[in-house]
Write a protein that binds this DNA or RNA. Structure first.
Lengths: 199, 199
DNA sequence: ATTGTTTGCCAACGACTGTTGACGTCTTCC
DNA sequence: GGAAGACGTCAACAGTCGTTGGCAAACAAT
């Protein structure tokens, strides 16, 4: 089938092992199952079957189901730099477009949201992403540093809400929105949450 | 300990049965478990234990786990009428305040969102609520009838996103927002999604 | 007092879960 | 060559799940 995709094996450290193909297949299958089924219903047996290996291999390479999930779901939002004065007044549009690209090309985001709703560890992971990746962006464009967390939370609420209705719940009217429509409607909202004077 | 609360027994039809207290206890325990644990981890055994009865009673009265969930989670958003010309220009604030009241006093909403993310039947139920309860409100205030579904979807994305970050994921900065802050920030967003000319 | 029905508890079923350990095979190094 | 270890398969464990049927007590109707 394939040999390497954008989110494949080799995190960059350690020598290449003979089992890297298997490890990669497990991770790919795990990501897909977690994304579509959530944590509990994503069975290790089902994941192993998808990866065409024995369930015990999953345990050998990732210790736990927890360990598998932790290894399968690592998220880097790759948020762009918006500190430039010119980009700062477009931060709404830039962020919305970036998020749409991310969500449509990376099933890991769906997996994390689906699992985070019922799994504490995954919810904590999402908090970490908000704190380490979203908050710095808000800091770049917010007028008052003290309001940064609140404004980042508002930002997260709108973006995650869109992802929830469109990519997780798949509500028809949310799925039916064209990309340009979403950007046109949401960009001003995000722009206001981040840069407008507090109301 | 209590005898009757706002969401207790007797849906209004049928003769009162001797087991109504038990049925109510089961439903109350089920709502709490579904709200905090999601569908899979909300065990029938755990629910029965909370209600101080035998697990088999749950099956007798609600047939299935599915049946129990269907009986436990029935949602009426009690959305206010906003057709009046004076209320129409306040629809953003009115809806946000109404949703905050709902979410903070009704654990059933949390249950439905938590379960809907991984359970098809619950997701369909949410679609039904959007269609039957949210869409009519949007129809009352939208300029162009053709845009009603899209605008209702935007409305849902912002309100569900807030509920997700604040009541389900419990992200600290979202939990830390004061009620007045939320209303001040979100009301203009909702107002715009529903009434502004399309961008 | 006797029926029939409702309510409840108990024990158990089959299926499925995460996880473990033993065992054969293939690769690698000396 | 042989030794050491990585890789993979198989069978099984202990536990939990939803669900079922039988049986005793409490009630209702006659």
């Amino acid at each position: 089938m394939n040999g390497s995709d954008s989110t494949s094996t080799v995190p960059g450290s350690g020598a290449p092992r003979r089992s890297d193909a298997t490890r990669g297949a497990i991770l790919a299958a795990a990501r897909e199952r977690f994304a579509t089924d959530g944590y509990e219903r994503a069975t290790i047996r089902a994941i192993a079957k998808d990866a065409n290996i024995d369930p015990s291999m999953v345990m050998r390479y990732y210790r736990n189901k927890e360990g598998l999930f932790a290894a399968a779901v690592a998220i880097d939002l790759r948020l762009p730099d918006v500190s430039g004065a010119d980009r700062r007044q477009d931060v709404g549009r830039i962020l919305v477009e970036h998020f749409l690209d991310m969500w449509e090309n990376n099933e890991v985001l769906t997996a994390l949201l689906r699992v985070g709703v019922t799994n504490r560890a995954a919810a904590d992971r999402m908090q970490g992403i908000l704190r380490d990746q979203l908050l710095p962006v808000a800091r770049q464009v917010c007028p008052d540093p003290e309001q940064v967390p609140a404004r980042a939370a508002l930002l997260a609420s709108q973006l995650l809400g869109l992802a929830l209705t469109r990519y997780v719940l798949r509500m028809p009217p949310a799925v039916g929105l064209a990309r340009a429509e979403i950007v046109a409607w949401l960009a001003p909202t995000i722009q206001r949450y981040l840069t407008a004077p507090s109301p």
